[in-house]
């Protein structure tokens, strides 16, 4: 009997496929659908203190080997989003509140509201590669990141996940700052900063010009990051980046991840991708004699 439930610190989830932030998660109805589609946990859209419209279109492109997006952190603001979270209070799966801000105080206030609204954990977005003053801009400053994580962990009792960027020289240094701030888990990776130019008009297609690259193309980057982090960080790791099949999830587990997040895969395989990946994972595990996800975690590490 294969058991694919997993734990991330104190958080237990019935299967290791979580919905990544930014996909089908701006309203309660969409998140309900992803729960019905079999996601083991839901990470919300990144929510800030105030409403934000995001960038004009085009915001998402499908390139040869992956997706390129610059949404620009659109969200209705934490006050309006509370209404959506209220509708999810009876949800069977954990809801993880993704939040973004510019200062430790902003993050702490947002985390506090997320906890109040029933979030099982918060995920700090310190890695969005295309929003001025937010995301990667705060997450690449280790001192600021330490202060943000400390402010949040002192404010709330629910687990604090920190989602970090691959667009740095030394990802371990960034994760260490989060670990010192008492984070409960590291989520890696956010998208890879990238661009697509239209030859006819000689201009970048995304309205924001640069965006974040995701999907299959970045899977090897994500796997390498998790592998590096697993050797230097004691915290549980959640792998994100190009996971589209059950075997992709196995690869991330072997690199050291205890759970995975799926985003672009919803485009490639539709909302039911969670159920499909879980089935593939179970099949792979039983064919290879594994009964528990924990047996796979870090199997490739030296």
């Amino acid at each position: 009997m294969v058991d694919i439930s997993t734990t991330i610190g104190s958080l237990r989830i019935k299967n290791p496929t979580m919905l990544a932030s930014g996909i089908m998660d701006e309203d309660a109805g969409s998140m309900h659908r992803m729960i019905r589609s079999g996601a083991g946990a839901i990470v919300t859209k990144s929510i800030g203190l105030h409403a934000r419209e995001g960038y004009p279109n085009p915001t998402v492109l499908e390139l040869e080997y992956g997706l390129l997006n610059a949404m620009g952190l659109p969200n209705p603001g934490i006050d309006a989003y509370e209404d959506e979270l209220q509708l999810l209070k009876k949800s069977r799966v954990p809801i993880i509140g993704s939040i973004y801000g510019a200062t430790p105080d902003e993050f702490a206030r947002l985390a506090d509201t997320m906890q109040h609204c029933g979030a099982a954990a918060v995920e700090l977005n310190v890695s969005c590669p295309h929003a001025k003053h937010y995301g990667m801009e705060v997450g690449c400053d280790t001192q600021l990141l330490y202060k943000i994580v400390t402010a949040v962990t002192e404010q709330v009792t629910i687990p604090v996940f920190v989602k970090i960027s691959p667009n740095v020289t030394n990802i371990v240094e960034i994760a260490s700052a989060a670990e010192q701030g008492n984070a409960d888990a590291i989520v890696a990776i956010n998208t890879v900063k990238a661009m697509k130019i239209d030859l006819e008009t000689r201009q970048p297609i995304l309205a924001n010009k640069t965006g974040g690259y995701s999907g299959r193309a970045i899977k090897p980057i994500g796997v390498r990051c998790i592998y590096d982090l697993a050797q230097h960080i004691k915290l549980p790791l959640i792998g994100v980046g190009g996971i589209t099949t059950g075997q992709d999830a196995v690869e991330y587990f072997m690199a050291g991840a205890s759970a995975v997040q799926l985003g672009s895969a919803v485009y490639y395989r539709g909302p039911d991708v969670f159920r499909a990946v879980c089935t593939e994972l179970k099949d792979w595990m039983s064919a290879h004699g594994y009964t528990n996800v924990s047996q796979l975690v870090g199997a490739a590490l030296p």
Partner: peptide, 9 residues
Amino acid sequence: KCAMGLCGQ
């Protein structure tokens, strides 16, 4: 926004 069934907008 995306028109690709991803962003949920």
